[in-house]
Computed example of a mutant assay.
Amino acid sequence: MKILIIGASGMIAQECIKELSKAGNELRLFSRGIKAENYPNHEVAPGDVLKKSDLERAINGCDAIHNTINTPDEALAVQNIVAIAKLKNIQRISYVSGATVSKENSWFTMVGNKYKAEQLLKLNGIPYMIFRPTWFMESLDMMIQNGKANVMGKQPLKLHWISSKDFAKQLSKAYAIEASINREFYSYGPEKLTLKEALEQYIKVKHPSINKVANAPFGLLKIIAFITRNKELKNIIPMFEYFEKTKEVGISDDTNNLLGTPSITLSDWLTQ
Results as ranks from 00 to 15, higher is better:
residue 220 L to E: 00
residue 210 I to Y: 13
residue 54 D to V: 03
residue 97 S to V: 12
residue 14 Q to A: 13
residue 105 N to D: 10
residue 176 A to I: 00
residue 101 V to H: 01
residue 225 A to H: 12
residue 206 K to A: 10
residue 184 E to N: 13
residue 196 K to F: 05
residue 150 N to T: 14
residue 222 K to V: 01
residue 102 S to I: 02
residue 193 L to T: 02
residue 37 E to L: 04
residue 118 E to Q: 12
residue 79 Q to S: 13
residue 46 P to M: 06
residue 177 I to A: 07
residue 194 T to L: 08
residue 160 H to D: 11
residue 272 Q to I: 13
residue 146 N to D: 13
residue 13 A to V: 05
residue 143 M to Q: 08
residue 192 K to P: 00
residue 28 R to V: 12
residue 238 P to A: 08
residue 199 L to P: 07
residue 37 E to N: 09
residue 29 L to N: 01
residue 61 G to Q: 11
residue 62 C to R: 03
residue 179 A to M: 09
residue 11 M to D: 04
residue 238 P to R: 07
residue 167 F to H: 05
residue 220 L to D: 01
residue 37 E to P: 00
residue 187 S to C: 15
residue 88 K to S: 12
residue 102 S to F: 06
residue 177 I to Q: 05
residue 83 A to C: 02
residue 219 G to Y: 09
residue 143 M to D: 01
residue 115 Y to G: 10
residue 100 T to H: 05
residue 104 E to S: 07
residue 107 W to G: 07
residue 144 I to M: 06
residue 139 S to Y: 08
residue 41 N to P: 00
residue 108 F to G: 09
residue 41 N to W: 03
residue 176 A to W: 00
residue 173 K to N: 12
residue 82 V to R: 01
residue 246 T to V: 14
residue 192 K to A: 12
residue 174 A to Y: 07
residue 270 L to S: 03
residue 123 L to G: 11
residue 11 M to S: 09
residue 157 L to K: 12
residue 177 I to S: 01
residue 195 L to H: 02
residue 258 L to M: 15
residue 213 V to T: 13
residue 152 M to L: 15
residue 226 F to N: 14
residue 21 S to T: 04
residue 110 M to S: 08
residue 203 I to L: 09
residue 142 M to D: 15
